[in-house]
Amino acid sequence: MNQDPRLAPPVRRIIPRQAGTVVEPRSEPAPSAAAAVASAAQPAVEPGVQSGAWQDPVDMPAPPRAPTTTHSNVVERMRLESVWLAYGDRWVVRDVSLPVRQGEVLALIGASGSGKTTLLRSLNRLTEITAGAARAGHITLDGEEIDGLEANDLRRRISMVFQQPNPFPMSVFENVAYSLREERAARRRRRRAGLPGRGPRGDQLRASVVEALRRAGLYDEVGDDLDRPALGLSGGQQQRLCIARSLAAGPEVLLLDEPCSALDPISTATIEELIVGLRESVAVVIVTHNLQQAVRVADHVAFMHLGELVEYGPSQQIFEHPRQQRTRDYVSGAFG
């Protein structure tokens, strides 16, 4: 795995920054990632959670696929605290608090209309461009309030893949190169990170595009002709193209909103495999109402019902020993 550094710059960059400047949370117990890292080092903490080993996950061998086991390199990246979301006068997400961690996949499950999509969209402030949406509560990324970040910078770091594949009406290549070409907008941020001010060009751009397509598992299928129209791909390929498009920007958190709901079983399996493989380099949040899928890919599961977060815990616990009656009903009902 010889990756272009551009594809995963945040991982290398953020750790030293946190080590240097500890973001001090306000008086309330809102631990930043730094705090989480610190607490992870304490003996009381479950041994699996520590920060030392994941500095360069790129070189790590992919762990065996065993979703419910904890990995050696898990760190909290985002934290939601008492998040409330409304459309107009109607609260559709009530008081949700959750951690989002790199190194594992978090699945949001729950019946339709329970507010999963809304919650996911609030994580990169897409709710701001939705008519009538409003939010209360704190969401932090590496200890920083997301409201304090420039919205577009934030969305580069926290990228979203939608329920319906939405490739742009361009060639496959242009779709993936899209965000790379738009790097200029993020020039200042990149300069701070010691990277060149502009996005990659020429051969370098091509290499980055190919790399992103490889990571999304699409290169073998479309690599022979990257100039083909993206809208001519199959549904599963389109969705993987959308994932590649998001990955090309080098996100730190990847949000997936029911990415397989429009796809056939084979495409679904491919994408699930891809998601599990990604969790080392990005924090992954996936919304699904397919419980089988949650079992297959998730390390932690959050069950939402009518806007409330009913239960959160390791996947195994949620599916085998749920604590809440409502979770038990939902899980068993769905399993038959």
């Binding site: 992870a40 304490q42 959670v49 008081d95 951690p99 932690h300």
Partner: peptide, 21 residues
């Protein structure tokens, strides 16, 4: 059971308190 979670007040993390909006 996760360390990072247990480090804080479990009533505010993980489960909706369903307090008043």
């Amino acid at each position: 059971m996760e360390g990072a979670l247990n480090a804080t007040d479990s009533s505010t993390l993980g489960v909706s308190g369903a307090r008043k909006p």
